[in-house]
Design a protein around this nucleic acid. Structure first.
Length: 541
RNA sequence: GCGCUCGUAGCUCAAUGGAUAGAGCAUCGGCCUUCUAAGCCGAGGGUUCCGAGUUCGAGUCUCGGCGGGCGUACCA
């Protein structure tokens, strides 16, 4: 059952009866529960079109709504013309029944109509360990995909592996240089090469696994080998974090079937390519870029841009209707150019959406964290997860919208005292589990005595539960997992109030069963909400 | 210089163009013999950076400033 949908349907019917234009209706949760269970601003929106006073319109809509009192107890008109709905007892009972019977599917919908969508995120270069920005992007992208699926999109996740080009050769040269050093020779890391201590580890492995062979093959080959090892490490770290990509798409795949050449031909045919100083330029300025960009260098090599365009067109060929790229703030120029490229290739305007995930400031006890000597990174994603745990990291990353800069304090992420809000939602779940353990045989949550749930805390809890589908829907459609996080905090607060005021296990058998049913419903919403954030729901804490 | 982005309580952050701008932390004061105190209750704390504009209504949209961050490669 979806309370908002029931009310929206009634509103549409009323608008139709009144011969008002059938505008989109969205319901809100009023700022104060005293104002009702849902509110609607449709009268305010219609006032301009109809050239009439909003309160008058609101009154007509109220009178036109058909209800025998089984759903709506009453409708109030407030303020400038808000329609405030107060639900009947009957609705709450139905709601609890439906949550218990649908279980984890509560909040699911078919809004997405199975539209194919692809989310590309992390896509860290396979030339070193991932950092904290990747951790943020991984948490966000993964949760977005989970939410998309929840509301009926056919959504996939993908990691693009830049396993070709100059950087791979440099990686190979760096590893070979360290390998030579290990064998007692003197060697230098090339200009622009990689200096982290992990290069030495790779050199050791290369020598162990292939004897001195790695020094005889080309730097490219060694680079590719090293990139593959690093990529495996990235995959392992991400899996530890609970993020499993549907596909790892290698840039090199594009070269084997000449996709980049075909893409170049396509752009040429559309007249967007010209030659200058021996290089091929893509006229991105026609699409709002500051200057035209090179796609083939004067010595004949494609820049990263061309295969990346080919990659995005490949996404379309695989049937994706909309694709989303999560990029770091240092790549926002790239996102713009890619959108220009998609336009030039004739893709619809809304095909590619760029999401710029803002940077993370890593702190420890309020002080900025210094550079790690070992890896050349601030702190690697793996080190971060090992220290604070996946659940805490995800909770923090999903507590803010992606467009805001984020301070991540390692100490407060680990804090388990009342000072830290990190484990607040999980704690509510653990408490529910504890109640069920205590209840033992009496744990058969029953629907027969639901009408006994009359306390304000109980009503508030049911009202909060009824908002779950609304929040899931908006978090999915607005690509805003942090809304789910905020909501789960509110739901947990409502539960903690209830827990404090209403003793679940008592002498009153009927009331006990009813309250156990309410606990079960909250548990279902908490588990599903945490799952959508990629977090676990521990039974004990 | 140009482009993108952010600016909300002392701090970290919320708030579909809607009602009295909300949480946590910090500060101050209460609650453990009871299903987990990782919890609950209460108090104080605001010119939403500044200035115009659009609107019935602006923290939110537009323009102009100011301040922070990030870009501005024949790197990826």
């Amino acid at each position: 059952m979806n309370v908002s949908k029931v009310l929206t349907d009634l509103l549409h019917q009323a608008l139709d009866d009144l011969k008002y234009p059938d505008t989109e209706i969205t319901l809100e949760s009023p700022p104060d529960p005293k104002m009702g269970d849902r509110s609607c601003t449709i009268a305010l929106a219609l006032a301009k079109q109809l050239k009439r006073a909003p309160r008058q319109i609101a009154e007509e809509i109220r009178d036109a709504i058909k209800t025998d009192g089984s759903i709506i107890e009453r409708i109030e008109i407030a303020g400038a013309g808000y329609l405030n709905f107060f639900c009947s007892e009957e609705v709450w009972l139905q709601l609890l029944q439906s949550i218990l019977s649908t279980g984890p599917d509560y909040g699911s919908s078919d809004t997405g109509k199975n539209e194919k969508r692809l989310f590309e995120f992390v896509s860290a270069n396979p030339t070193g360990p991932m950092n904290i920005v990747s951790a943020r992007a991984a948490a966000l992208g993964d949760s977005m995909v989970r939410l998309q699926k929840k509301v009926g999109f056919s959504a996939d996740s993908e990691f693009y592996v830049n396993d070709s080009g100059k950087q791979i050769r440099l990686l190979g040269e760096s590893v070979q240089a360290r390998a030579r050093e290990l064998q007692g020779e003197t060697a230098e890391i090339p200009d622009g090469g990689y200096h982290g201590a992990y290069i030495k580890d790779l050199a050791k492995r290369a020598l162990d696994e292939s004897a001195a062979n790695c020094l005889e093959v080309s730097a490219e080959l060694t680079g590719r080998w090293a990139a593959d090892k690093l990529r495996e490490g990235q995959e392992a770290t991400l899996e530890e974090y609970g993020v499993k990509f549907d596909r790892w798409f290698r840039e090199s795949e594009l070269y084997t079937d000449n996709s980049h050449q075909k893409t170049l031909e396509r752009l040429k045919a559309n007249g967007h390519i010209y030659e200058k100083d021996g290089a091929l330029f893509f006229r991105t300025t026609e699409f709002g870029d500051d200057e035209d960009r090179v796609v083939i260098t004067s010595d004949g090599r494609p820049t990263y841009f061309l295969p990346d365009i080919a990659y995005h067109l490949n996404k379309a060929e695989r049937g994706y209707v909309r694709v989303f790229d999560l990029l770091g703030p240092d790549h926002h120029g790239h996102g713009k150019r890619m959108q220009a490229a998609m336009k030039a290739a004739g893709m619809p305007d809304d095909f590619l959406e760029i999401i710029i995930v803002q940077q993370v400031n890593l702190l420890r006890g309020g002080e900025p964290v210094k550079m790690s000597k070992r890896t050349g990174e601030m702190v690697t994603m793996k080190e971060l997860l090992d220290e604070v745990g996946a659940d805490a990291a995800r909770q923090i990353f999903l507590s803010r919208k992606w467009s805001s800069h984020l301070d991540f304090d390692i100490e407060s992420a680990k804090d388990r005292s009342e000072k830290s809000p990190v484990f607040y939602v999980q704690y509510a779940h653990a408490r529910i589990c504890s109640i069920f353990r205590k209840a033992g045989d009496r744990g058969d949550a029953s629907l027969n005595d639901l009408e006994k749930l009359k306390a304000a805390e109980e009503r508030n809890l049911m009202r909060s539960l009824s908002l779950f589908p609304d929040v899931v829907e908006s978090a999915a459609l607005y690509l805003a997992p942090h809304r789910l996080n905020t909501y789960l905090g509110d739901l947990a607060t409502a539960f903690h109030h209830f827990y404090h005021e209403c003793r679940v296990i008592s002498e009153d058998e009927g009331l006990t069963r009813a309250r156990l049913a309410l606990c079960r419903a909250v548990q279902i919403a908490l588990i599903e909400g945490l799952r959508l954030m990629g977090m676990t729901a521990p039974e004990r804490m």
